[in-house]
Design a protein around this nucleic acid. Structure first.
Lengths: 147, 147
DNA sequence: TCCCTCCGTTTACAGTTGTAACTCTACATG
DNA sequence: CATGTAGAGTTACAACTGTAAACGGAGGGA
């Protein structure tokens, strides 16, 4: 059946990401606050935002708790889980042989702090200890190779 | 600004990625070959694959050239462009402050070759020369901070 | 010449996403 | 008590996705 394990996080659409980020940042809040914060960034109608909230609840990404007569929203998965899950989902689509190239591009274009860089370097050094000299392309059934 | 920028590549759906990867790998091929290769990985009907191909052409990701009486398909964007574009789109949804963390997770989970690692390290070293000590969260309009 | 088969085109249909109006209900207020 | 109102729920609707059957024309073989 459903619930419990989300064996690879529900898809989060772009609009949903925006809402989730607010929830993660604030921890918990009422739809009214959510709507106000959201409208400070996007001119979406109240209705639109409420629809998105309900969909997020249905997907199990948000949960509500009745307070007075309104609902307090909280996230059911952490921002880290969501970020890592989505990033991994994306990388799953890429040719195994070219993931490194894509990471390189990201590293060059994403803003990173000195601390981030240190951690990344440490991880790479660690990874180098067991990394292979090559990774095979997995774009075709098995036959022809990737260049 | 930059140059020749393609204002953010058409969205590529998961099914479409699978087809595109075959096209990128083979360079150019007829729908029949594409269908056969695809069916060796997924049990999609001919029809389904043909529909996807037409949609990819409509989106401008594939282009056709009439040969005899069938079409030869080729990609209009390179695999690298697509990979980088999609990866950047994903990262656009993430909190600026947490992109480093996500990259760290990817680096730890993605299979990388020694060469990939060396390049990544070189890029990081370069980046460290100008990296800031912190990056601000951009999840809320401006107000409240991220944790 | 006739039909079968291959390939491309049309149509289909449910589910998801973006976007939003409308409605219902319980309160607060006059 | 009569209402306006905030917050929740219902309905809507077009575009996009996943998945595929059905249709139509052209070439190859009988």
């Amino acid at each position: 059946m459903s619930e419990a394990v989300q064996n690879s996080i529900e898809e989060i659409t772009p609009s949903e990401w925006e809402l989730m980020r607010i929830v993660w940042t604030k921890g918990q809040l009422y739809s009214r606050e959510l709507i106000d914060l959201m409208q400070a960034k996007r001119s979406w109608s109240d209705s639109t935002i409420k629809t998105l909230l309900r969909r997020l609840v249905k997907k199990g990404l948000l949960q509500t708790e009745k307070q007075d007569r309104r609902f307090l929203y909280t996230a059911t998965i952490s921002e880290t889980e969501a970020m890592n899950g989505s990033a991994e989902q994306l990388f799953d689509h890429l040719c195994a042989m070219k993931k490194g190239e894509t990471l390189l591009n990201l590293i060059q274009h994403v803003e990173l702090t000195q601390t981030d860089i240190q951690k990344l370097q440490a991880a790479l050094t660690e990874k180098a200890k067991t990394a292979p000299t090559e990774v095979a392309c997995d774009c075709l059934p098995n036959s022809a190779k990737c260049d």
